[in-house]
């Protein structure tokens, strides 16, 4: 599929495009640059690729973080909202493999794996999150709400945790 052909087609449609590149900021810049020729900036999201916990999460995280920091410092080729497919987390076998009961039921491991990957990506600056499990969606939404409300904690709530009887 040639970029020129598809761009010609989508530029006349009412849609948003996700510019997907494989964990490489130079490629992300290049693709954005090319897309700018066809589409207004308001119609481009960028996805620098996501990796799940235990499957290269830190690489995905650091690329996303660099993209956002560079954008904030004025790199106009990276100033697009970040999209992330956190379902990639399921590439890790531990997210679905039948394992010793010690590691918990896999029905919980799957959304947990996806949710944690999602939260970590939010911390790297993700703006748009794609998930598969309904529980992930629910939890990530709640956490975003909590993070945006930004309340100050009450010190007396946790002051004496050291001596709590748990």
């Amino acid at each position: 599929m040639k970029l020129e052909d598809i761009c010609e087609y989508i530029k006349n449609k009412d849609c948003i495009v996700i510019a997907f590149t494989p964990m490489d900021l130079d490629k992300a810049r290049e693709l954005n640059r090319k897309l700018f020729d066809y589409l207004p900036k308001e119609r481009i999201l960028m996805d620098t690729n996501t990796a799940g916990i235990g499957y290269g999460l830190d690489y995905g995280f650091t690329v996303m973080e660099r993209a956002r920091l560079n954008a904030l410092k004025g790199d106009s080729e990276l100033q697009q909202p970040l999209a992330t497919g956190v379902t990639n987390a399921l590439a890790a076998r531990e997210a679905w493999l039948k394992m010793d009961p010690f590691w918990g039921p896999r029905e919980i491991r799957t959304p947990l794996w996806e949710t944690l990957t999602g939260i970590i990506n939010i911390l790297a600056g993700a703006d748009y999150i794609m998930t598969m499990h309904p529980l992930t969606m629910q939890t990530v939404n709640e956490i975003v709400e909590v993070l945006m409300s930004g309340k100050l904690g009450k010190a007396e709530d946790i002051m004496d945790w050291v001596s709590w009887k748990i």
Binding site: L123, I143, V146, L147, M148, S149, G150, K151, L152, G153, K154, A155, D157, I158
Partner: peptide, 15 residues
């Protein structure tokens, strides 16, 4: 600095 959780201040903690 204290670990506040959930709506009780997670945002503060991270910041």
């Amino acid at each position: 600095l204290g670990t506040f959780t959930g709506s009780k201040g997670l945002a503060y903690t991270i910041n």
